[in-house]
Design a binder for these strands. Structure first.
Length: 507
DNA sequence: AAAAAAG
């Protein structure tokens, strides 16, 4: 396997990566880095969780040189604030052995710190469009020397919601520059549009086009569900054997908050991320999830793209997304860096056409979602939900049993104490009954850590551990603090049942 | 139509 050292990368960067155990290069990195280093414009496309960030980040850092002059030389634009934080951390790692400094510029935060870092001469800016334009308009951010430009999640950045901002930003950077666009999804029309901002770009696809876009190591399970049942079913899934971290996606901010409260009431170690939360809360919640202090994250599509968390074993689509691209990005929060994952999707009756669309676009070839549990014990087989509770609509797991199973209690108690709030269910319960949801105030995250603490989970890391395509399935311990399941039953029984009953697609 | 992104 190709290592980073083989790719013409400066030794200090190779060392920085090695310090996190990152040695082997993924295919997208192998293909784009040698082109990016000499300044070739690139449209880089590779599946979720296969290392795109370093694919563009390493050339950016290296091309600035060991001791770049003060002032912004590189701009990386991303669609969400949390992704800005994450990419900032990745780039910061790459620069750890050189004088280059990086700053994250995004909304919801005080201006002061960001402006200070710009004034101190930061050379690489990672940011979201709104705040970037804001600061540029105030002459606090000078992009006129930013000869390195990257759009991460490029198809999203060129979407209608962002395109006007992106055009503004491109007007502020030099006409002669090195431009890189990366995403797992790059529809033809977007590629055509993208060329307007690039010169003679080469389109790199890191995988066989015939292979489709979905990750082979993600198993897709699709069920028709009645909305009233979903809380129960999700509660059951959260008790599946071998479950590590789990991300649950909802369609709306309100639905996300409701589910955070509901699952919290049921005793799960859950946090949320959505746009109605305060930015500090969002970041604490993400950090707690990344660090393993929480093992369930309920999110809107703000977390659908790019977010890289180790050991996410399950993604649950509480509501099926409208677009195939969104489905693919959501599911891609699991099965990263060669690991396996499960994506469970609930399809409401009126949303069956959406599943048909996604099914077709992603070439799943799945006939029809199976009805959940009234008729389908398959749900429980496929998800390894412990025997004895199978097929029965059980009430919520009691707080006690879940707590002993999951995160060590002392830690939680300590967190709550440190925060000086009553983290317990009382506030949530009251609020839920009351119907109104003053969101943002319901979480009590670990008080100690901030977003950029040591919660950094070796971005795209782990790759050294396993060869491409190997499945770590039953052999691996996914949990922090959770006792290894004594009984590990067959993962998969007799394939997938009978005609049409198989909710399985993919690997 | 929702979510995201400036405040």
């Amino acid at each position: 396997m190709t290592t980073f050292a083989d790719l013409g990368i400066d030794q200090d960067i190779v060392d920085a990566l090695a310090s996190k155990g990152i040695v082997d290069a993924f295919p997208i990195q192998e293909q784009t880095i040698p082109l990016g280093l000499p300044g070739q414009d690139i449209i880089g496309q590779a599946k979720t969780g296969t290392g795109k960030t370093f694919g563009f980040g390493i050339p950016v850092v290296q091309r600035l040189g060991l001791n770049p002059e003060h002032g912004v030389k590189a701009l990386i634009v991303v669609p969400t604030r949390e992704l800005a934080v994450q990419v900032y951390e990745d780039i910061d790692l790459l620069t750890s052995n050189r004088s280059t400094s990086v700053v994250a510029i995004y909304g919801g935060k005080a201006y002061e710190g960001q402006i200070d870092q710009l004034k101190a001469g930061a050379q690489i800016v990672v940011g979201t469009p709104g705040r970037l334009i804001d600061l540029a308009g105030q002459r606090l951010l000078d992009l006129s020397n930013a000869t390195e430009v990257v759009l991460d999640e490029a198809d999203k950045m060129l979407d209608l919601g962002f395109l006007a901002d992106i055009e503004k930003i491109f007007q502020k950077v030099p006409a002669v520059r090195h431009t890189q666009l990366f995403s797992a999804t790059m529809p033809g029309p977007i590629v055509a549009l993208a060329r307007r901002f690039m010169s003679n770009p080469i389109h790199i696809r890191a995988s066989d086009p015939d292979e489709g876009l979905t990750q082979a190591n993600i198993k897709h399970l699709v069920y028709r569900a009645h909305s009233l049942d979903k809380d129960e079913i999700i509660a059951r899934i959260l008790q599946a054997e071998g479950r590590g971290k789990t991300v649950i996606f909802t369609r709306t901010k309100r639905a996300a908050q409701r589910l955070v409260d509901e699952l919290g009431d049921r005793g799960f170690n859950v946090g949320g991320v959505h746009g109605d939360m305060g930015q500090d809360q969002r970041e604490r919640s993400m950090a707690a999830f990344k660090a393993g202090k929480r093992d369930v994250l309920v999110a809107t599509d703000v977390a659908a793209r790019g977010i890289d968390v180790d050991d996410v074993t399950h993604v649950i689509n509480h509501t099926i997304p409208d677009e195939d691209k969104t489905y693919l990005h959501r599911a891609g929060r699991t099965g990263r860096a060669g690991k396996t994952g499960i994506a469970v999707t609930f399809v409401d009756w009126e949303d069956l056409h959406k599943w048909a669309l996604i099914n077709r676009a992603l070439e799943f070839g799945q006939p029809e979602p199976v009805e959940t549990y009234s008729s389908s014990p398959h749900l429980f087989e496929d998800l390894d939900i412990p025997a004895g509770t199978k097929g029965r609509l059980v009430s919520a797991p009691k707080t006690q049993s879940v707590k002993t199973e999951r995160a060590p209690r002392p830690e939680r108690a300590a967190d709550a104490a440190a925060e000086g709030t009553d983290e317990g269910g009382t506030r949530r319960r009251r609020r839920r009954r009351g119907g109104s949801n003053p969101v943002g105030s319901t979480f009590a995250e670990g008080a100690t850590d901030s977003a950029s603490g040591d919660s950094q989970s070796a971005p795209s890391g782990d790759r050294s551990a396993e060869g491409a395509g190997t499945h770590d399935g039953a052999g691996k311990e996914h949990h922090d603090g959770k006792p290894a399941p004594a009984r590990r039953r067959r993962r998969r029984r007799g394939g997938s049942g009978g005609a049409g009953a198989a909710p399985v697609v993919g690997a």
